[in-house]
Structures are given as structure tokens and as C-alpha cells.
């Protein structure tokens, strides 16, 4: 990490675990959970948010002295919306099927609280380079949770990963299925995502007791 000072490196590493946007800051849950039934959709969502947050934080940070305080929310929304339109158009051009699966959830990145949250809390008060690192770090922490949830939901729910049948064929009864293993259909339905995240929070807070909330 010769490129980054220790303080800068922490900007990226902190949100990955002890200050994770989803499990600790409770931001950005909104638009993401419904699409984690498949690992592929989760990864695409994570990458889209990474792009929007990285670029958005830099733009807001560069504009921070020009935006009047009173209308900053609208200014921020316009910046995010423009970036999200770019992501949406690229997806429609190069991965049309996937953009159908994600449907309105790409658009909902605009109101993803984590983006507005980082703009407000960080980009408005810091220079572009540090804001960039902060954006990348938080988006990565967000993406990490998405990918973990997507991994378990697809593996346990459909027995596949990125579409590959890693556990064998459930119809032809090969691999694990020949032993009588069945897919857990429960993991496919949307509420399972909430329970998986609940369990992630449980594990994380048992490992790091500082994070436990007061009763």
C-alpha cells in the first residue's frame, strides 16, 4: 500500500467490516435485497453502485463549494440520476436480459440512501481523492454483503452459482442430489434475504462485541 497512506487505506478498509454500510450504518438496504436471489444480479448491482458512488463522490466533492446549501439535495439527486441513467443505458445495450431482471432496481440506485449518505457525510467536506476512496470503500462494503447474500441464496435455493450447477442436477438426481439432498425453495422468496442479513449481523456482532446495541 505504498500508494495510499494509512489513513487513506482505512477509508477503504473500514466500510468493509467494522463500519459496513448495510450491517452497521443501516444504509442502502432499500434497492438491493430483492435482486439477491441470484449471484450474477448481485454482482452487477454491486458493480453499478461502485461506479455510481466512486464517480458521484468525486463530482460532488469537486462541486462542493459551488452548491448552495439549501438546494444541495436536489443537486445531489441530479448528479446521481445522471450517473444511473448511464449505467442503465450501458446495461440495456450490453446485457439486456440482465437489465430486465433488475428492472426498476437499477433506477432505485438513485434513492439508495448509502449514496446520499456518503455525499452528505463525506464528499461535501473532503477533497476529491479522499472522497473517491471513501466512495469506493463504502460501495465495496455494500457489494460484499450483496455478494454474500446472493451466494448463499443461489447456492441453497437453486443449487447453482452464476448459473452453473455446482451441486449436480436436481432433475436428473446427480451429484449431491443422488444422496437425497433437496433445494431449499425458501431461499428464493424475497423475505429470505432479510433473514440471511439478520444472520450476518448476528455473526458479525458476536465476533465484535463493541458493535452490540444498547438494550
Amino acid at each position: 500500500m505504498a500508494l495510499l497512506s494509512k489513513k487513506d487505506a482505512n477509508l477503504i478498509l473500514d466500510p468493509l467490516a467494522d463500519n459496513n454500510p448495510i450491517t452497521i450504518q443501516v444504509l442502502g438496504i432499500c434497492s438491493a435485497l430483492a435482486i439477491t436471489a441470484e449471484l450474477k444480479a448481485s454482482i452487477v448491482m454491486a458493480v453499478s453502485v461502485l461506479f455510481v458512488m466512486g464517480v458521484g463522490n468525486v463530482v460532488i466533492s469537486l462541486l462542493r463549494n459551488l452548491i448552495p446549501g439549501k438546494i444541495r439535495i436536489i443537486a445531489q439527486l441530479v448528479v446521481v440520476a445522471a450517473l444511473v441513467i448511464m449505467v442503465d443505458q450501458v446495461l440495456k445495450a450490453f446485457a439486456y436480459e440482465l437489465s430486465k431482471t433488475l428492472s426498476v432496481f437499477i433506477g432505485l440506485i438513485i434513492t439508495n440512501c448509502i449514496i446520499m449518505g456518503r455525499f452528505e457525510a463525506f464528499a461535501l467536506a473532503n477533497g476529491p481523492w479522499r472522497s473517491f476512496l471513501d466512495g469506493i470503500g463504502n460501495a465495496a462494503g455494500y457489494g460484499l454483503i450483496l455478494v454474500i447474500v446472493g451466494f448463499f441464496r443461489e447456492l441453497l435455493g437453486s443449487g447453482t452459482l452464476l448459473g452453473y450447477k455446482v451441486l449436480g442436477d436436481s432433475v436428473a438426481k446427480t451429484g449431491l442430489y443422488s444422496l437425497g439432498y433437496e433445494n431449499n425453495g425458501f431461499m428464493i422468496i424475497p423475505p429470505a434475504a432479510l433473514i440471511v442479513i439478520g444472520i450476518i449481523i448476528w455473526i458479525q456482532r458476536s465476533r465484535n462485541r463493541v458493535l452490540i446495541e444498547e438494550a
Binding site: 422468496i189 433473514i195 439478520g198 444472520i199 456482532r205 446495541e213 444498547e214
Partner: peptide, 16 residues
């Protein structure tokens, strides 16, 4: 460790 946020997630899941 489940207090607060964690249990809220799980309850929402069950309600879902």
C-alpha cells in the same frame, strides 16, 4: 448480538 437491528431484520423477514 441480535439486539436492535438484527432482530428487526429477522422479524421483517418472518412478516414477509
Amino acid at each position: 448480538p441480535l439486539r436492535g437491528l438484527g432482530i428487526a431484520f429477522i422479524i421483517t423477514g418472518l412478516m414477509g
